[in-house]
């Protein structure tokens, strides 16, 4: 296995690992939203502006979880495609070697068709890998969009929290946890994108 293939395997496998961390964080946001909703309910009028935000945070967490679940399925199929591409490339290289080794064999010509077929299959796999990487990058961009939205919500939450009197500290803690979670999601997804973008145009 050459270095390029090894790093392709590592890149694809690392996406699943990064995304499982994103999933944990998205679930934390969902919990923070439930917590915030309870505090805002107790705070009554003092946290009136905060109440609709909690629903929004919850919705955002739910959408992120759904998105990551679907990306994980996609990442798994990309991994299978990587295995398949590796297998087809090995076969093609071996078939080329056979053509070289069997030059003087009576039936050497019979390898021409399998060789041509192996070449086409390998090239198809490579094209499909690039297409799938592009699609996965688009899906990851959608998660990034969610993370950015979560940060805006966290900023708004801080403003609303400042008007919540004795509930200020509790609601600010919620805003902080949403902001921290959004940061983590952003960083993890960004690592996935960097790892994959190498293969978009290769």
């Amino acid at each position: 296995m050459n270095i390029q293939t090894k790093s392709q395997f590592v890149a694809v496998a690392s996406i699943t690992s990064e995304l499982s961390a994103v999933m944990v964080v998205a679930k934390e946001i969902s919990l923070a939203a439930a917590n915030a909703k309870a505090i805002a309910f107790r705070a009554g009028d003092k946290a009136k502006g905060f109440q609709p935000i909690t629903d929004f945070i919850n919705e955002l967490a739910k959408e992120t979880i759904e998105l990551v679940t679907s990306i994980n399925v996609y990442a798994l199929s990309l991994y299978q495609l990587t295995v398949n591409e590796y297998r087809k490339t090995i076969a093609y290289n071996k078939f080329e070697l056979i053509a070289e080794l069997s030059k003087d064999a009576a039936h050497a010509h019979s390898m021409e068709e399998p060789l041509e077929k192996a070449k086409l299959t390998m090239e198809n796999c490579q094209r499909q890998f690039k297409r799938d990487v592009k699609q996965l990058l688009d899906q990851l961009e959608a998660v990034m969009h969610h993370a950015r939205a979560a940060r805006v919500i966290a900023a708004n939450s801080r403003i609303e929290a400042s008007q919540a009197g004795e509930y200020l500290q509790s609601l600010q803690a919620v805003a902080e946890s949403v902001d921290k979670a959004a940061h983590t999601i952003h960083d993890n997804v960004q690592r996935c994108r960097i790892a994959l973008s190498l293969y978009r145009n290769n």
Partner: peptide, 16 residues
């Protein structure tokens, strides 16, 4: 052994 083996068989039989 696949490649040398296949190359050797081609002296005796076509792939198909």
């Amino acid at each position: 052994l696949f490649a040398p083996m296949m190359a050797a068989i081609l002296h005796h039989a076509p792939v198909e």
